[in-house]
Design a protein around this nucleic acid. Structure first.
Length: 263
DNA sequence: ATGGCCAATATGATTGGA
């Protein structure tokens, strides 16, 4: 089973790219972020025509996450625990039934947090604490689970072309990386790093300053696997070529293959 | 030349992104 995550930076601006990439990569499940539209405005029909069930947690103008799945959804739940007053659409949890049993999938869009001297950074750190609490609870279930999305975290210096340029950025500050480590240290596996320790693995290149042309990228889109999912991991990759297409998102898809055939 | 973009919005300037 192939599962992918992609921050599309507006689903309505990215439908041509999304459909082309779905035909090329043939994922079974896709976690989307920054759809930037309401549930009503989400283009369900063309995706359903490609064989996907669709679950959406959107809002007007900003943020918004969604899930596509060739398997039907057994359960879908929007929102991250820990703050009932948080109205930003950044989290969508679902369960599908595979031949090996239930698989829990979360599509998440972690707050950017810039500038760091504002309440935006406090919101980011608090959101990360809530994600740690959520993950701690779900890991007790000891089932295959993956947290997939735009984490807005550069985990290490190896994950940036120019780490010094990000030294004071909310994506790379020590507190941010510390919280990300605390999350991973609950027992999650960073899928890309489980199969590849190269230094030039990026998932985002800014639209500005010729970042793509200079390969000035960062790795901030991640798939974190529970032990029961990590045991089934057979491959992981980044579709960086999609960044070179016409009308690209500034992020590219990241995917994993899990052996859930239930032998 | 050390800067250069993109998307949404009762839109033509502002906000957010990273």
């Amino acid at each position: 089973m192939r599962i992918a995550t992609w921050n599309v930076n507006s689903i309505r601006q990215r439908m041509d790219n999304l459909e082309a990439w779905l035909r090329e990569r043939q994922p079974d499940i896709v976690c989307l972020q920054e759809i930037k539209c309401t549930d009503e405005a989400f283009p369900r029909e063309p995706l359903e025509a490609l064989g996907y069930n669709v679950a959406v947690h959107g809002q007007k103008t900003f943020n918004g996450v969604a899930l596509l799945s060739k398997l039907p959804f057994d359960e879908v739940a929007p929102g991250l625990i820990g703050d009932d007053a948080d109205v930003q659409a950044r989290f969508l949890e679902a369960i599908v039934s595979t031949k090996s049993g239930a698989l829990r999938v979360i599509s998440l869009y972690l707050p950017n947090g810039n500038p760091p001297d504002t309440d935006k950074y406090a919101y980011k750190l608090n959101w990360m604490s809530r994600l740690i609490n959520f993950s701690h609870e779900r890991l007790k279930l000891e089932e295959p689970m993956l947290l997939a999305g735009d984490f807005n975290v550069i985990p290490t210096t190896t994950d940036a072309s120019r780490p010094e340029a990000w030294k004071n950025d909310a994506l790379f500050l020590p507190q941010t990386r510390e919280k990300f480590r605390a999350l991973v240290n609950l027992g999650l596996t960073d899928a890309i790093r489980a199969v590849n320790d190269e230094s030039d693995l990026y998932t985002f290149w800014d639209y500005q300053a010729g970042a793509w042309a200079k390969d000035d990228g960062i790795r901030i889109d991640h798939l974190l696997l529970s032990p029961q999912a990590a045991d089934r991991l057979t491959d992981a990759g980044i579709d960086r070529h999609v960044r070179g297409w016409d009308k690209p998102s500034d992020h590219v898809p990241v995917y994993i293959d899990l052996d859930l055939d239930g032998r």
